[in-house]
């Protein structure tokens, strides 16, 4: 598996898009950190971008890589390697190279800003941890969709819809249900509904850790009571981990039966 991983990272690191992605984060980091007097505001803007963009890029890269390397995967399948190792290697390759782009793209501006001398190191690590989780989650989801869909146009469509649903539509439905049922106590419902969407979960996690939950009003206080504690933090990390683990498990299951 390590050999496959090595080659897919190698392959991706030479693709132009990895650099475009890296440079995008680099520019974004510099602009936001140095043209903004308030670090909190800069981090929130960064967060809003990371939370929508990393899932989108992870989804697109995942689906594209799967379909583009299909014939090559067939060549690998005829080699004496276990099936699941080929796909795990490719999956980790994409997720790690995207995480590397994110880490370096944001890391360099933060280092220039004085990462090691300020409290910014905490914000930075939180952004990176959440961004990495989102990379791993959405590449896994994209790989699941691609593995289940032969037609690449359809596969691409489903993947984008999945992103759109989790990034935009889910929030819409969530909001509408909050308004419709606002006579009922909704704290538990909102907490649970947040858990079912990795994007929402990441957003809330960052917002609350940044101590700006006061902006969120009453619900914010309920959320703060849960996510703000160490217990809440561990639970949310665990759920993010489940969001990686379950799709990967399904991938393994699907691979046992799939014909190439």
């Amino acid at each position: 598996m390590l050999k496959i991983l090595k080659y897919s990272i190698f392959d991706l690191l030479r693709s132009r898009w990895s650099y475009v992605y890296f440079i995008f984060y680099l520019l974004l980091g510099f602009v936001l950190l140095f043209l903004n007097s308030d670090i909190n505001k800069a981090v929130i803007t960064l967060m809003n971008i990371i939370i929508v963009l990393t899932p989108l890029i992870g989804t697109i890269f995942g689906v594209m890589y799967y379909y583009n390397s299909k014939e090559f995967t067939e060549l690998l399948l005829a080699q004496p390697i276990k099936r699941s190792k080929i796909f795990m290697g490719q999956y980790l390759g994409i997720a790690l190279s995207l995480t590397l782009s994110l880490f370096l793209g944001l890391g360099i501006p933060f280092v220039f800003y004085g990462l090691f001398k300020s409290a910014a190191i905490f914000d930075f690590s939180l952004l990176i941890v959440v961004g990495s989780f989102l990379n791993f989650i959405f590449v896994a989801l994209a790989y699941n969709i691609a593995l289940s869909t032969e037609n690449r146009i359809k596969g691409f469509g489903y993947a984008i819809l999945m992103w759109l649903f989790l990034a935009v539509i889910y929030d819409g439905i969530f909001m509408i249900s909050l308004i419709m049922f606002n006579e009922y106590p909704l704290d538990k419902f909102s907490l649970i509904a947040t858990m079912f969407n990795p994007i929402d979960l990441s957003r809330i996690l960052i917002l609350l850790k940044l101590d700006i939950s006061a902006l969120l009003g009453y619900t914010g206080a309920v959320f703060k009571d849960f996510f703000g504690t160490n217990f809440g933090f561990i639970i949310s990390m665990f759920i993010l981990f489940l969001w990686v683990f379950l799709p990967v498990l399904r991938m393994k299951f699907k691979l046992k039966k799939k014909d190439f």
Partner: peptide
């Protein structure tokens, strides 16, 4: 069909 990674 021989289709290999284009970057290698």
């Amino acid at each position: 069909i021989a289709n290999f990674p284009t970057n290698l």
